[in-house]
C-alpha cells in the first residue's frame, strides 16, 4: 500500500485553519483519493495555537490519531515558529510552507531546516487583505501548498474553494478567495 501523504497545519484559533484542512480534503477527494481532515481537539479559544491534520492517499486510510511525521507542514501564522515546535517529527524530506513576508532563506534559517527539507514562504495574509479585505490567510496558503506539493490539481482546488465559500458567502468574497488561492500558487517562493 502506498503510504498516505500526511500534513500538519499550525494556525491560531479563528484563522480558518480547520476549514482549510477540510477544503484540501474535499479537493483531494474530488481528485479520487481517500482523505482525512481533523483538528486536535481542546478548548477552543480565538488566537490560541491549534493544530490540524490531513491524510491523503490513493488507498483506504486506516490510521487514526494525530500525524506524527508530517511530510508537509503548513504554518499559517509565522509567530508560531517562536511559540510551538513546528518542526517536531518532520522527516528529512519534509516540506514547510510558511505564511510570512520574509524571504524563504530567512525562514529556512529560522526553522533550522535540513538541506534535504524544502522551505517555502508566501505572504498569505497580505494577499488575503488585498483580495477580500480580511487577514484570513488560508485560501492563499492552499494555493501555495498546491504549488509546493503537487498534491492536487489547481483547477480542482479552485473548484473546492468555490464550493466551500459558495455556501455561506457573497460572490465578492468567493471571487476574492479564488483570487487569493491563485496568487498563493503564483507567488509562493522556495528558499
Amino acid at each position: 500500500m502506498a503510504k498516505a501523504i500526511e500534513i500538519r497545519w499550525h494556525g491560531r484559533g479563528g484563522q480558518g485553519t480547520v476549514t482549510a484542512a477540510k477544503v484540501l480534503a474535499d479537493a483531494c477527494l474530488s481528485g479520487g483519493g481517500y482523505v482525512q481532515a481533523f483538528p486536535e481537539y481542546g478548548p477552543e479559544r480565538a488566537g490560541a495555537p491549534i493544530r490540524a491534520f490531513n491524510r491523503i492517499s490513493g488507498n483506504v486510510i486506516r490510521m487514526y490519531g494525530p500525524v506524527l511525521h508530517p511530510k508537509v507542514v503548513s504554518i499559517a501564522d509565522a509567530t508560531l515558529m517562536d511559540a510551538v515546535n513546528v518542526t517536531e517529527g518532520a522527516p528529512d524530506d519534509a516540506i514547510f510552507i510558511v505564511n510570512t513576508s520574509r524571504d524563504p532563506k530567512e525562514v529556512r534559517a529560522k526553522l533550522k531546516a535540513k538541506d534535504s527539507q524544502k522551505v517555502y514562504s508566501i505572504d498569505a495574509t497580505k494577499i488575503a487583505v488585498e483580495c477580500f479585505g480580511r487577514p484570513l490567510p488560508n485560501s492563499s496558503m492552499l494555493g501555495a501548498i498546491c504549488r509546493a506539493t503537487g498534491i492536487v490539481a489547481m483547477d480542482v482546488l479552485l473548484e473546492n474553494v468555490k464550493k466551500s465559500f459558495g455556501k455561506k458567502f457573497a460572490q465578492k468574497i468567493i471571487d476574492g478567495n479564488l483570487n487569493a488561492a491563485r496568487r498563493g500558487y503564483e507567488e509562493v517562493k522556495e528558499g
Binding site: 484542512a21 483519493g33 481517500y34 482525512q36 481532515a37 481533523f38 481537539y41 487514526y64 490519531g65
Partner: peptide, 12 residues
C-alpha cells in the same frame, strides 16, 4: 462510533 476520532473527523 469513537468520539472525536470518528464523530468529529472528516473522512471519505
Amino acid at each position: 462510533m469513537d468520539g472525536f476520532i470518528v464523530s468529529h473527523s472528516i473522512e471519505r
